[in-house]
Each structure stands twice: as C-alpha cells, then as structure tokens.
C-alpha cells in the first residue's frame, strides 16, 4: 500500500495505491483520520491505482466517515476499479459513500456543493 496526499482546489485528495488489507488497514485509517482532522473537511479518496481493499479497509473508511459526520466533513470516493466497485456494491457500502468516476469529478462535485 502506498498513499499520497495532495490538496486540489481546497479539497484534500488521498491517492491510494496497491492493496489495503487487514495488515495495513490501520495505517490507511491513520491517513484518513489525519486528513479529516478536527475541522470541516472535504476529502476525496482516489482509488484509481488501488488493486484490492479488504473488509478491514472498508471499516477504516467507515470509521473516517463516522468521524467526519459530526463536523460536517464529507468523504467521496473516486475511480474505483470494477472489482473494487463490486466489493462496495456487495457489502452495501456503495450506499454509504459518494462515488465518482474519477478524481476530478469528485473534486468538482465538492466544488459544486
């Protein structure tokens, strides 16, 4: 797993790469929690280069979403590969997150909001 962080037009973008499994999910969670911080944050988790995400990874996203909710923060996911989209669909997580076709669309969606 490799995660880079960048700010694009006032939106934090977390680019994930490789595999997120139970071994490194806590690290992923750490990144997410840091990105959200205390304040109202718009966070895009880009999954263009993500090859795999386990249920532990989903849980990390869930924790981040729950943490963001009280302060009005929002988390969007972008550029999922089909098999990852499948995971989200199967687990029903698709209904919990905003999912965009690519990073720009996600950022733009935040900008429009």
């Amino acid at each position: 797993m490799n995660i880079t962080e960048e700010s694009v037009g006032g939106v934090s973008v977390l680019r994930t790469e490789g595999r997120i499994d139970s071994g490194n999910a806590s690290e992923f969670e750490g990144h997410l929690v840091r990105a959200i911080g205390d304040g109202s944050v718009k966070l895009v988790v880009d999954m263009a280069k993500l090859t795999y995400i386990s249920s532990a990874g989903l849980r990390a996203l869930l924790i981040a979403a729950k943490k963001a909710r009280p302060t009005g923060g929002r988390i969007a996911l972008s550029a999922m590969a089909p098999h990852i989209r499948e995971v989200f669909d199967l687990s029903g997580f698709s209904s919990l997150f905003e999912i965009h076709s690519d990073e720009a669309a996600a950022v733009a969606a935040f900008g429009a909001a």
């Binding site: 989903l58 869930l62 199967l90 687990s91 029903g92 997580f93 209904s95 919990l96």
Partner: peptide
Amino acid sequence: GGHNPPLRVTRDGAVIELERCQGIALAV
C-alpha cells in the same frame, strides 16, 4: 447483508450467482 452472493450449481453444470438482494453489512 453485504455478503458475497452464494453460487448455485444445477444438475446440468450451470453455475449461477444467487440473486442479489438489497442489504448492507450489519452493524454499520
């Protein structure tokens, strides 16, 4: 509840995914 749909194998060897039905993982 958010689980992989089981597979059904008929006598003629066809493998079919069980119909999907709405439901998210429990406890979320």
